[in-house]
Design a protein around this nucleic acid. Structure first.
Length: 496
RNA sequence: UCCCUCUUAGCUCAGCUGGUUAGAGCACAUGACUGUUAAUCAUGGGGUCCCUGGUUCGAGCCCAGGAGAGGGAGCCA
């Protein structure tokens, strides 16, 4: 017999603790309840704003200061962790519907509020800049903004798993450490146990990685795609969702050295199927977040409005965050080929008036950020899927089109963020794949395991990579990718 | 990696043409008030003006170098 035990933490008075999110539903009115959390603010020597992270909303706990010891009152400071027990009553004040009339307070952990003392709690009951909060990333979860961001991040991660699970995809854990250096997705971080001061040398006087831990040079993965394709050739539909590493010296609001990526890979999908799945997935997870984190997203939407009040009119968004998300859900993504995009850009007044830094003239060059932004934010004003890029600016594994010039690639561009998804139908024909690898000087002997998929029961298949943090940026309306991952890793920064 | 901007109180920022004792709001401390919602009112404390060097009678302000941060570009997700 399977027994399910409902575990709830108890406190010393043997009261069952209730989470603030549930308390605020008001169903326990006139009952004695216990709540534990961190003090956000203590007003008027009476009103504690308490938050336990379960909701953006605080619970107001009302202390009768005339009947409470001064030594206790002085310890109710921002950041302190307390347990309060009392009766849940309808609030006499306007800001909340229910509140706790406190009968008992237990202080778990004090928090120094005097800003002049060296051990003072760095979060004051006032607004802080995102840059400052980034320096205290270990405490920023306790703010409204970051509380909301990381609850939404969680929901999006869960929704992604739910979406693929409901469609019968297998979640495949691809390796973090790889020996493959042929993926070509970017600079890699080396993984080694060799002594950097005195590495073993080969006869050619180079570092001898045969003596390294794995007997060969290894790196942190830049993509799980190639391994994902192996899974798709057995399970039909797989996806990966894990950390990915790029040692690029990128200093932008859209890049991290360590980020999380979702990479589905589907047998029997062509490019159109691939695009349809990507669009369906994005709309599903955004809907899921709107349904399950409504208050957080409303808060973030308001936060963005307040922030943009300080900007000149021209720099403000036309739509609020909520409007932008709903607009994205209510409209088909624009779908055009690279060639059509070049035509639109070339014929645009923007190009004719030479407002682009890079003037569009011929066919074949990669689009610059300014061109992508023009297409998404000015021309279509909604997400755009660009397909069929010139083969020379794309990866070796993308399926070659009949025209001999383009490949079956797709990039999904989002307003304000740029590329959020990159994908393609894969080249399933062994000979064409090998020829392309030779043309691009990709060593085929290192990737025999990959080419085996094309030798043994190859089939049309496709997949894409979604940058998880870029999705979180879009849904939360945050503008710097360092603010949507708990502990960002970027060039020259690996704190915490 | 390249370009631009910034660095002044715990935080967010002002600081005039280089001029004598460094400014505000918030936060904090003390007191008053006691149904507050960024509480309010009064009083008070708090400064390596990022660092190093230079110009000058005199530098927070000008110059050079360095460090850190932000924005943009490239690379990409």
């Amino acid at each position: 017999m399977l027994k399910i035990i409902n575990f709830t933490p108890q406190n010393s008075t043997n009261m069952t603790r209730t989470k603030i999110k549930d308390i605020l539903k008001g169903t326990q009115i006139n009952q004695t309840v216990n709540v534990k959390g961190w003090v956000r603010n203590f007003r008027n020597n009476s009103f504690i704003a308490l938050n336990d992270g379960s909701s953006i909303n605080n619970l107001q706990a009302v202390v009768d200061f005339e009947k409470t010891n001064d030594s206790i009152l002085k310890r109710i400071t921002p950041g302190a962790c307390i347990s309060v027990t009392g009766t849940l009553v309808e609030s006499q004040g306007k800001g909340q519907s229910v509140e706790i009339k406190v009968s008992d307070i237990e202080i778990y952990g004090d928090s120094e509020s005097d800003v002049l003392k060296p051990n003072a709690y760095p979060l004051q009951p006032k607004a802080h800049s995102l840059e400052y909060l980034r320096e205290i990333a270990h405490l920023r979860f306790r703010t409204n903004t970051f509380g909301a961001v990381f609850r939404v991040r969680h929901t999006l991660a869960y929704a992604i798993h739910k979406f693929f699970n409901d469609k019968g995809f297998v979640y495949l854990h691809t390796p973090i450490i790889t020996s493959s250096d042929a993926e070509g997705a970017g600079e890699m971080f080396r993984v080694t146990t060799l002594d950097p001061k005195n590495p073993p040398l080969s006869e050619a006087n180079e570092v001898d990685f045969k003596q390294d831990f794995f007997g060969k040079a290894t790196n942190l993965t830049v993509s799980g795609q190639l391994e994902g394709e192996l899974g798709a050739m057995a399970f039909s539909d797989v996806y990966t969702f894990g950390p990915t590493f790029r040692a690029e010296n990128s200093n932008t609001t859209r890049h991290l050295a360590e980020f999380w990526m979702i990479e589905p890979e589907m047998a029997f999908y062509d490019l159109k199927d691939n695009m349809a799945l990507a669009e369906e997935m994005l709309k599903y997870v955004i809907t899921y977040a709107l349904e399950n984190n409504k208050e957080d997203i409303e808060f973030l939407s308001q936060r963005l409005l307040d922030e943009e009040k300080n900007k000149p009119q021209a720099d403000r968004s036309e739509l609020s965050l909520l409007e932008k998300l709903n607009f994205c859900l209510g409209n088909e993504f624009a779908k055009i080929t690279y060639t059509e995009a070049i035509d639109i850009l070339r014929e645009s007044n923007h190009n004719k008036k030479k407002k682009f830094q890079y003037i569009i003239d011929g066919w074949g060059a990669d689009l610059q950020s300014e061109h992508e932004r023009y297409l998404v934010e000015k021309h279509f004003k909604k997400p755009v899927i660009l397909t069929d890029y010139p083969k020379d600016i794309k990866s070796f594994y993308m399926r070659q089109n009949e025209d001999g010039k383009t490949v079956a690639a797709m990039d999904i561009l989002f307003p304000g963020i740029g590329e959020i998804i990159g994908g393609s139908q894969r080249e399933e024909r062994l000979e064409k794949l090998e020829n392309r690898m030779n043309e691009m000087h990709i060593p085929t002997h290192d990737l025999q395991w990959y080419l085996d998929t094309r030798r043994f029961g190859t089939c049309p298949h496709a997949g894409f990579g979604l940058g998880f943090e870029r999705l979180v940026l879009f849904v939360t309306g945050m503008t710097n990718i360092r603010d949507v991952i708990a502990f960002p890793r970027t060039p020259n920064n690996c704190e915490f």
